[in-house]
Simulated assay, not measured.
Amino acid sequence: MGQDRSRHAAPMRRGILRWNRGDLAILVCGFLAFLSFTFGAPLFQPSAQSHPTALARPAPLPAARTAPAAPAPSDGGAAAGAAGPAQPAEAQTPGSSEAAGPEVPAAAPPIHIRYPSAAFDVAIHPLDLDGEAQSSRTIEPPATKDGYWLTPFGVPGKGSGNTTYVIGHSWEGADAPFNHLSSAAAVGDHIEVETAAGTISYRVDSITTYLKSGLKDSAVWDMVPNRLVLISCYTEDPWGKNVVVTAYPADPQ
């Protein structure tokens, strides 16, 4: 009986010891939890090295969208002021719809052109073009001394969104109005275009000669509102060159 008691006593004591250790662990965990809730912060702060985002600040609220900041100056350049110099406004093409200009009648087909200083006074007729002529810019007007308005492009007058083109033949061995574009046209001259809605005054901005082979790909064909372009053969080289007179609306002279 004595041996039996000793055999059962040891396990009982070990069982009591295991329960006491578990109870102690529960008490310690409860105590740590109490401290954590009481002081409002974790007892063990994770390291930033092992958890890179653990100490990151919360992202700020998005700010109002602004223009991108100017790039910082290079090491060799001087830093600009905080505001920086004002940038100039974009240059405007003379005669463009944005630029201020004289009042003109509503856009309407041209019927007559007078260019006093070049002894140029001609009737204007509409000239329709097929798709091939428009794309190749290779246009042959009727063999007369009048002018021909290219109808697929601009119409002179207020609200026009493109250039008005008037073309005509220069003549060898004969006096013809379009011959004078090569010999008498000058920058600053005034041209009057009579339309179905009224008369528009233009001022010559440039006189340029082009190789016939290069005219079709030149800036002459750029879409420019309210521009007037007169085109003919250049009399000093009628088979190789064209003369182009460019003008924009101006106050009457």
Rank of each mutant, 00 (worst) to 15 (best):
Y202N: 01
H190W: 01
D121T: 07
G157P: 04
L211S: 10
L150S: 12
P11M: 14
P60D: 03
T199C: 02
S47C: 07
Y165W: 09
P142M: 02
D251Y: 04
P73I: 08
P110R: 01
S6T: 04
A143N: 11
A91F: 06
T199W: 00
I113G: 10
I231W: 06
D128L: 12
F153G: 05
S97T: 06
G214A: 14
S136Y: 11
D4W: 03
Q45G: 05
A59D: 14
L228W: 02
S117I: 07
L17Y: 01
S36W: 08
L32V: 12
A143E: 09
S47A: 13
A10I: 14
L211N: 07
R7C: 06
V244M: 06
N242W: 00
R5S: 11
T164P: 00
P116N: 02
P156S: 10
A108D: 13
W221N: 07
L215D: 00
R227Y: 04
P46D: 08
F44H: 03
A9N: 11
D146Y: 09
S201G: 09
A107S: 12
L35P: 05
P62D: 02
P52D: 13
P141M: 02
Q134L: 14
A174T: 02
P126D: 11
W221Q: 04
K212T: 02
S50C: 05
H180Y: 02
R114L: 08
C233A: 09
V193N: 01
G84F: 04
F178M: 06
K241G: 02
R57N: 13
A56R: 15
P141I: 04
N20W: 02
P225A: 11
A25N: 07
L43C: 00
G240P: 06
T53F: 13
I167F: 00
L61G: 10
A33Q: 03
P94D: 00
E132C: 03
G173H: 14
D121A: 09
S232T: 15
Y115I: 11
A247D: 07
L55Y: 05
S218W: 03
D23C: 10
G161L: 08
D23W: 10
R227N: 04
G22F: 15
F44K: 00
A185L: 07
P109S: 02
A196Q: 12
N242R: 14
L150E: 09
N226G: 01
D189E: 10
A196D: 14
A174Q: 07
H51M: 11
G84K: 01
A9L: 14
R21D: 02
A184K: 12
H169N: 13
I139V: 15
P177S: 07
L215V: 13
